[in-house]
Design a protein around this nucleic acid. Sequence first.
DNA 1: CCCTGATTCGC
DNA 2: GCGAATCAGG
Length: 180
Amino acid sequence: MTAGWTDDRVGALKKLWLEGQSASQIAKQLGGGVTRNAVIGKVHRLGLSGRAAPSQPARTATSFRTTRPRPAAPAATPAQAPQASAPRRLEAVSSKPVPPTPPAAPIPDLPGTATVMTLGAHMCKWPIGDPSSREFSFCGRRASEGVYCVEHARVAYQPQVRRGAKESGSDLARSLRRYI
DNA sequence: CCCTGATTCGC
DNA sequence: GCGAATCAGG
């Protein structure tokens, strides 16, 4: 009788997951014989996949891949039909070279509504503040497609910052810093 | 080999 | 909805 994602178990899951805990860590803490697979599965079902952690890029093995082919797909059309399933998210590689890319930080100041408990599956999961802090919250606005609202998706999925240039302290750097 | 999350698919 | 098996990458 380990099954059953009770309300508080789900709450704990959300909290830990969005705190940055790994699935295995969460599974361990939840005890109850839940495996990391169970945790991950639940996380996905809750729509929390993708996890919001723009502050920690160099984390988790496959934090976010741009595409996932899915080779093991017997039956259907073995050859051709490369389309497969619809694209998930992250269109990092844009067709344009994006030379200047002056984001100018459109987003004003987020109200920061929605907490780990109130955060729904289709709410923007852009983290506001320190996850450990009690005042931690999420944007909570309608998540257009991924886990973020359109505005946050823009800054979250920013393909890449032109490095090498004297951007140390540029508006861009400062703009991005405002969101972490 | 350790770890990570992502996805699929039978239940 | 659930989660083991599997995949894919670091």
